[in-house]
Design a protein around this nucleic acid. Sequence first.
DNA 1: TATTGTTATACTCTATAACTATA
DNA 2: TATAGTTATAGAGTATAACAATA
Lengths: 133, 133
Amino acid sequence: MTSRDLATAVGALHREAALLYTRVARDFQLTSQQIQLLCALAGEPSFGELATALGCDKTNVTGMVDRLQSRGLLTRRSDTKDRRISRVVLTEDGHRLREHVRERFAQSVAERFSRLTPEERSRYAALAQALAP
Amino acid sequence: MTSRDLATAVGALHREAALLYTRVARDFQLTSQQIQLLCALAGEPSFGELATALGCDKTNVTGMVDRLQSRGLLTRRSDTKDRRISRVVLTEDGHRLREHVRERFAQSVAERFSRLTPEERSRYAALAQALAP
DNA sequence: TATTGTTATACTCTATAACTATA
DNA sequence: TATAGTTATAGAGTATAACAATA
């Protein structure tokens, strides 16, 4: 498999996943970026850590957290050691919603991959070979 | 591999690809969505076909095409059979740029996957198994 | 009547620069 | 001085509703 073929397969899988994220997000009245922020919350990350995980600037995280906080899904907590740092904490509602989102996304992925055309299947099989050691 | 594990791996690959797209796009002074529109241009799609391929509303395609057209990368062409339909055509500059973008993205993907940590590699290997027939 | 692309509107995401409060 | 989060700003992506041209 050439690097171009690998890139094509990765691009196809990326678009596929993006469509699923968008659909799931809409079902929950959220944006795709918002459910990705929720699912990226491991522990209690700082704003900077969230920005790195999401691949965007830290200035954007402020607004995204604002909007999710105003919906009661998460809160800010001051770091006890370094008072410059704010940490993002899921509320109970946030935990519940994230669990539902993950479950729904997993269902969507499973369903989508069970309905691949032969062409799509062979493309992903080639991707699988390239990824395997 | 459970459907949750599959979804986790797909999500990780999606985020990985998104970061690569963003970086490549910035190198060409474009947005991630713009290079995805360019790369999604197979033949001479209508606006509606583009919207479906990109997973967004047709109303957004108008603006995205406007911006790329003002940079000389593509043009509109009226369908000869149905005058309601406009088709999007890459210019010569557009073809050249798309080729460079694809090459750069392929390089980025190849380089990224050559530097996976053992943990990442095993996660993707599990994904590969789930994707293989 | 239905469909295609467009416009208007409102909201979200995004990066850059300048600011504050902490370190 | 340097860093973390914020604000202001500008541009781009997004969906909904309403519209003109065409079928």
